[in-house]
């Protein structure tokens, strides 16, 4: 695990992430920096669409590491997350063994001699060759360090959390038939949660914690500029102010950063220089996906657009 430490300081993290189009507040930089130094997982919480998953992607780019993603869902178990035996291959192998067994055992005279001979081959049956690595094992066994994203961990069952805990605390996995597999490199682990279910305290304790909220207007402008450099400044300011105002209203699904980016892209494609009510009306479905939200916003579209233009 003698890899050189990639990040020099919290600022360095922020700069490196920004170089790859990911703008984040200093606090996130500090957590990433410390997690990297201390070899600890990061738990990122916050509403949907604030860029929790993007953080992992940006990190993998900034650190030039492979991103291994484990998407959690209800019913996710060890077999899907860690490893599985390749039954079919094993079966084939036994069949092969059946055919070859005569050849193999010819020349042996007693039963114990035959068994001894067999035993020298038997261990093959449960060997790494038949092991189908799933994301967790892949991250642990990878030859170069990786970024491991465990996305929406709150969607998985509580039992899975307990199991994760075990893996994340010593970065080693015990396969009963083989033994303990240790990490060649400690991966950079990012867990995300929308808090649909309460995570256990034990998991929280093991991680460094970040709460991500929607960005401030300044941050959001910077994010859009980083991704869509050719956006006209006036349009940019208006788009951000419009979206920020929507988030202050009580929406079923407030616009995410990704949706804001899509909207801005669409407006640039339409060669808009600034917002007007008609344009907003036509393109509103880029940022609002819920019927109820759309209806309420449409009713008020003139005022909201005026407000956004006034800044």
């Amino acid at each position: 695990m003698g890899e050189s430490r990639f990040f020099r300081s919290p600022e360095h993290v922020v700069q490196e992430l920004a170089r790859h189009g990911y703008i984040c507040p200093r606090g996130v930089g500090t957590t990433v920096f410390l997690a990297h130094q201390m070899g600890k997982p990061i738990l990122v919480e916050g509403p949907a669409g604030v860029g929790k998953t993007e953080l992992a992607k940006a990190l993998s780019m900034a650190m030039d590491r492979e991103l291994i993603r484990l998407q959690c869902y209800e019913g996710l178990d060890e077999n899907k997350a860690l490893y599985e035996w390749e039954y079919a291959k094993q079966l084939l192998y036994t069949q092969l063994l059946k055919e070859k067994i005569g050849e193999l055992l010819c020349g042996t005279h007693t039963l114990s001699e035959a068994l001894d001979k067999l035993r020298s081959h038997e261990s093959l049956f449960f060997s790494e060759g038949f092991l189908l690595p799933r994301p967790l094992l892949r991250a642990i066994r990878a030859d170069s360090p990786t970024v491991l994203l465990i996305d929406e961990v709150d969607k998985a069952d509580p039992e899975f959390e307990a199991f994760l805990l075990e893996v994340l605390s010593d970065f080693q996995v015990t396969v009963p038939e083989i033994g303990t597999l240790r990490a060649k490199h400690i991966p950079m682990v990012i867990l995300t949660s929308n808090n649909t279910r309460e995570l256990a305290d034990t998991l929280r304790r093991r991680c460094l914690h970040v709460f991500m909220d929607y960005p401030t207007p300044e941050q959001e402008r910077e994010i859009i500029r980083a991704r869509i450099p050719d956006v006209p400044p006036r349009l940019l300011a208006q788009v951000v102010s419009f979206v920020q105002n929507l988030r202050k209203m009580d929406m079923r699904k407030p616009p995410s950063i990704g949706e804001t980016l899509d909207w801005a892209r669409a407006l640039v494609l339409l060669s808009a220089e600034q917002l007007d009510p008609g344009l907003v009306e036509q393109t509103l479905n880029f940022i609002l996906k819920h019927q109820e939200d759309l209806r309420r916003t449409r009713e008020d579209i003139h005022r909201l657009t005026r407000q956004a233009i006034a800044g």
């Binding site: 200093r26 500090t30 410390l34 738990l43 991680c207 460094l208 970040v210």
Partner: peptide, 13 residues
């Protein structure tokens, strides 16, 4: 940074 370091290690909610 001092504050952020304390926060991220001590406060998990």
């Amino acid at each position: 940074t001092f504050k952020e370091a304390l926060r991220t290690t001590l406060v998990k909610r």
